[in-house]
Design a protein around this nucleic acid. Structure first.
Lengths: 128, 128
DNA sequence: TTGAAGTTCTACGTTACGTAGAAACAGCGC
DNA sequence: GCGCTGTTTCTACGTAACGTAGAACTTCAA
């Protein structure tokens, strides 16, 4: 239950953008954003979708535990449960987790990170 | 096109076992193995599948580039294109690749590896 | 040449996802 | 109070992936 469809990802992108700004988005907001970014960055082409389409997707994302919805106020507020970075890192752990030989996988993995990333990792891992 | 179904994964597990032994498996081999490991380790429960089912799955895996088939000899030989470790590491890169801020993801990622794994990583990254 | 083993073709059921209409609901201005 | 407009829910259809496998064609060996 980890993979996202194309539209699901596009919606998460919008929510993640808001996450950084600690914003709780309304549906209206999101539609505006996606229309503004039409054909631009925020994926999924500039074709505007039906309102219900986005809501359906939001519901599915909520069921998957990726989105939280505040039902108190009337235009509900939607927000990503975790940041994009956290989510991605979690995904990586998920992938890694299913491996019998985790360390061997890690060896391959760092075998192909960029030098700058390797540098970051060294710092993060601290001196030994 | 990265995710595998349950049966697809089970089949890959068989092939990966052979990969370590540099074995090129025939269909017969695989059925024997999966039956032997029935209800045991090699997943997917002990129910034995139709021959064609496994072949279909193998074809799909081939199409996905995960399996290579030698068509020369008559009982064809099937083998995993890359080891489980390589494949998993590749998957991790795939997940990471889609992130705008790769380094931030890495930071979160290593935030939750075991100490022994961190140690491994330090060794692999070498001294800076 | 005939039969068993192997392979290909085709197909059906289920589930995920993109998509959206129809209907129920909730405030707002009159 | 009442209807209009924006919001949410319910339901549903089309496509694609995957589990599953029958039917038919191909090989090789006896």
């Amino acid at each position: 239950m980890a993979s996202l469809g194309e539209l699901e990802r596009a919606v998460m992108d919008l929510l993640w953008a808001g996450h950084e700004a600690a914003t709780a988005n309304t549906l209206r907001d999101m539609l505006a954003q996606s229309t503004a970014a039409h054909g631009g960055a925020a994926g999924h082409e500039g074709k505007d979708l039906a309102v219900t389409t986005v809501l359906t997707v939001l519901s599915r994302l909520e069921k998957k535990g990726l989105v939280e919805r505040e039902r108190g106020m009337r235009p509900h507020r939607y927000q990503a449960v975790s940041s994009r970075e956290d989510h991605t890192a979690e995904l990586m752990h998920e992938v890694l987790g299913s491996a019998p030989d985790r360390e061997a996988v890690l060896a391959r993995f760092i075998g192909s990170v960029t030098e700058s990333e390797a540098e970051t990792l060294r710092k993060l891992l601290g001196h030994s």
